[in-house]
Design a binder for these strands. Structure first.
Lengths: 187, 187
DNA sequence: AAATTCTTTTTACAAATGTTAAAAAAGGAT
DNA sequence: ATCCTTTTTTAACATTTGTAAAAAGAATTT
């Protein structure tokens, strides 16, 4: 049962039986730096939790690689627009560095919801949190300047140290050149 | 039990007992055009479903009124960042036109989750949908031009007919002046 | 260590959007 | 219908961001 994310305990405590059932549909996977975890165009059938490392959700817009989301140690990563609709998505998931993660099979998970009320609750709470994160991100994209967004990123994360700037630029909704300019003003 | 949103039936069917319990914590409220439904700075303790009308979530950024979200007939409207954290929020809710809505008391609702598994599931599914909407909105804000965002809005909604442009502009992340210019190019 | 590749910065110019103010248009009130 | 208020458009100019290309810097491979 070492394939149950430790962070889950802090969110909602589930029964021993539930843990066993959850463990049975979870597995630990390891990825190299830059390795693709889920390809563009696939359906999201896995809930990932990062044990150690970093990953991003990305897609292509007119040939440009755009990073929509970053996830780090102990964070959940899913392509919600596919997981919760069953539709394929044009987004992929990629490891940014050497990454070890727990992969939970989503169809099995949804089946467990019927048998284990506490599992459903745990994941309800998990995704409510994710939902709140996306709402906050809208706020920042909607009416902050690129400079403000970059400053916030500096304050709230240590992203800049470990992640290529090209990924960060598109995450902020700007080009690499623009981010480079903003960084120059910070010195 | 006419205070249970009809749309709920299409999402997940709950038991008669659950409906009764849900009905007991729900009430119908009516608002005038421009009337404030929830003030800025409050905690979100209500899940609203619009029966008829339109409402928006808004906040102030450096004195400017910014619309973050619109909701219309049969749509849910909540300030997620407060509802799911318990924290107060700097966002408010306002009726854009004469609006009738169903107000579900959130603390009571969360209590019902324990007794009625099907109510928890219904609302899990409801908020998963909302979550997916916010993810799609990030996509549009992150790397579409203002013109693209406006074009999409025209295609997918009839917002422009009934809602002041000043609200739409900030929703798109641009100024009124800029939106007016974009509209001029569309003719 | 040199060569190669990838990433980041810089430059110059173009396009998009913001700001301020005024004019025009639309909507409500009397 | 006229007046008053609010909303939308237009104009002129400033600022920000994008684009393309080159240069500089890091990282990786040989």
């Amino acid at each position: 049962m070492d394939n149950i994310p430790i962070v889950f305990n802090q969110i909602y405590d589930i029964s021993h039986a539930a843990k066993k059932a959850l463990s049975a549909i979870s597995s630990i996977k390891n990825y190299e730096k830059n390795e693709l975890i889920q390809p563009i165009g696939s359906r999201c059938k896995t809930v990932y939790v990062i044990k150690k490392g970093a990953a991003r959700i990305f897609y292509l817009k007119e040939g440009n690689d755009i990073t929509e989301h970053f996830a780090f140690d102990n964070e959940v990563i899913v392509r919600a627009e596919s997981l919760f609709t069953g539709n394929p998505t044009l987004k992929g998931i990629q490891a940014i560095e050497v990454t070890s993660l727990i992969a939970i099979d989503a169809p099995s998970l949804f089946t467990l919801y019927d048998e284990y009320h506490d599992i459903e609750r745990l994941f309800r709470l998990i995704f409510e949190k994710e939902y709140v994160h996306t709402v906050k991100r809208i706020e920042s994209l909607q009416f902050q300047s690129a400079t403000e967004r970059y400053a916030d990123l500096l304050e709230t994360t240590n992203l800049v140290d470990k992640i290529p700037l090209k990924y960060i630029a598109s995450y902020l909704g700007i080009t690499q050149v623009s981010l480079s300019r903003i960084r120059a003003n910070f010195r």
